[in-house]
């Protein structure tokens, strides 16, 4: 008859403990923290929300996605129910606190960047066919000059919650700032729900907070030519956004005409192929990636160095690179 002694029982117990430890040893987070990921086509692009939380990550991710949808519907100048559509097409004053607040912030960025960032560039988008009606032929100088008369931050007036036109044919677009704002709003919703770590990606406008198992979040920076990845940024509690000439453009006579306009000339900005900005929030990263693109490497780097928490990488069409002083801190 088999006889078991006390020291054998201890061996069995030790083996069981070893198995349990191996199964949980790689996870730096509490075993009970759960993960959810949601992706959908939204805001004219592909959006993803990744969430780590103790409680109901599916619900948190869905709420964040819904908030981005709400923001987009309000700021989308092509949505007939949006106050921006009414302003642009019928001259109705915008009477919305949220829209006016973002317009106010846009005005401040316009002033800081010497006019490089401008929400009144919509007539140029229309003229060059970047407003959902592709033209793919450069307009002539007279047409550009005519459109430029409708561009300028001085052609709208923002008072409290209200935006009015100072010139009848001015039109606005939040296309270079609303996506970033939507990402910030999604992050706010997630933090309110007690989420400890998340990544929100709205077509390349990204905000990360907290960490994921294994450490900081990793964001790949797309190379402006060729589609590969140039760098990988490691971050937590930061936003990353890129403006580039390679997603929305047409070629004519061997020349590239893209969608990021210089509000001063009426032509697509030249001298830059891509700008990647790291900032404390996604709205700032989104807006300044456009502004720095227009400003060009020297002016943009000089401004970035004065801005707390803002770093940038600028690549020219010849693939020369310019970086602000702290950018390398984020690289793996």
């Amino acid at each position: 008859m088999m006889q078991l002694h006390i020291n054998v029982r201890k061996c069995v117990a030790a083996a069981c403990f070893l198995c349990f430890t191996l199964l949980t040893v790689s996870c730096r987070r509490p075993v009970s923290e759960k993960y959810a990921e949601k992706s959908r086509f939204l805001m004219g692009t592909y959006c993803t929300v990744k969430v780590y939380t103790l409680y109901n990550p599916e619900e948190a991710a869905a709420a964040a996605m819904f908030r981005m949808h709400e923001v987009y519907e309000k700021f989308n100048h092509l949505n007939e129910g949006s106050p921006v559509y009414g302003f642009n097409n019928y001259g109705y004053p915008v009477e919305d606190e949220e829209v006016a607040a973002l317009a106010e912030k846009s005005g401040k960025i316009n002033a800081i960047t010497g006019g490089a960032f401008d929400i009144t560039v919509y007539p140029l988008l229309e003229l060059w066919g970047f407003n959902n009606s592709p033209v793919e032929v450069p307009p002539d100088r007279k047409e550009i000059k005519k459109a430029l008369r409708r561009v300028g931050a001085d052609k709208i007036k923002i008072t409290g919650n209200r935006i009015v036109k100072k010139k009848d044919d001015v039109k606005i677009t939040f296309g270079s700032i609303a996506k970033g704002y939507a990402v910030d709003e999604a992050a706010r919703v997630l933090k309110q729900k007690g989420v400890s770590g998340a990544l929100i990606d709205a077509g390349g406008d990204i905000y990360v907070f907290g960490e994921k198992p294994g450490g900081k979040w990793r964001v790949g920076v797309r190379h402006p030519r060729g589609g590969g990845i140039s760098y990988v940024i490691k971050a937590s509690d930061a936003a990353v956004a890129t403006s580039g000439d390679y997603e929305n453009y047409f070629l004519k006579g061997g020349k590239r005409y893209h969608h990021i306009f210089d509000p001063g000339t009426g032509y697509p900005s030249s001298g830059t192929a891509s700008v990647t900005v790291i900032a404390p929030d996604a709205m700032t990263a989104d807006a300044y990636s456009t502004a720095f693109f227009v400003m060009g490497p020297e002016e943009a780097i000089a401004l970035a160095e004065k801005m707390e928490g803002v770093e940038c990488l600028i690549v020219t069409p010849c693939l020369n690179e310019f970086r602000s002083g702290g950018f390398n801190f984020y690289l793996q």
Binding site: Y46, L199, V221, R222, I233, T242
Partner: peptide, 26 residues
Amino acid sequence: LICIPNRTVVFIRGHEKDKIYDAVTY
């Protein structure tokens, strides 16, 4: 690979530890 007009996504499955990055800015 994402095609927005065709609402199509082609993606590579794999374990979290094998991923080089969590998202791409472009």
